[in-house]
Amino acid sequence: MANWKKDKISGVIIQKLVKHVDERGYLTETMRVDELPEGLNPIMSYVSYTEPGVSRGPHEHVEQTDIFSFIGPGNFKIKLWDNREKSDTYGNYMLLYGGEDNPITVIIPPGIIHGYKNVSKTARGMVINYPDKLFMGWGKKDAVDEIRHEDEANSPFSMED
Rank of each mutant, 00 (worst) to 15 (best):
I43D: 07
E29H: 04
E60N: 06
Y49S: 14
K77G: 01
G39W: 02
V18M: 10
H59Y: 13
D101R: 13
I112L: 09
M136V: 03
I107R: 00
R84Y: 03
Y90R: 00
S10L: 01
D132C: 11
Y130K: 02
F76Y: 12
W138M: 14
I78F: 14
G99S: 04
A153Q: 14
E35Q: 15
H61A: 09
D161R: 13
M44D: 10
R84L: 11
Y93M: 14
L40E: 10
P73H: 14
K77N: 08
Y93I: 01
V33T: 03
E38D: 14
E51H: 13
F76R: 15
E29I: 09
K133L: 12
K19Q: 15
L40T: 13
S120T: 07
M136R: 15
I128L: 09
P131Q: 02
E152P: 00
V106W: 00
E146W: 03
D22E: 15
D132P: 04
W4G: 00
L96C: 07
G11D: 08
N92H: 15
L80G: 13
P52E: 06
G11T: 03
I104D: 05
F68C: 04
I71P: 06
A153F: 06
S120K: 11
V12P: 03
N75G: 02
G11K: 00
G111K: 02
Y116R: 04
G98D: 06
G125I: 03
H149S: 02
N3K: 13
E23I: 10
K121T: 07
L80S: 12
T30L: 09
H114N: 08
H59R: 08
G99F: 02
T30E: 09
V127C: 03
E146S: 12
V144I: 05
G39R: 00
V47T: 10
R32N: 12
I14Q: 14
L134R: 01
H59P: 10
L36S: 01
I147C: 09
M31Y: 04
N3D: 12
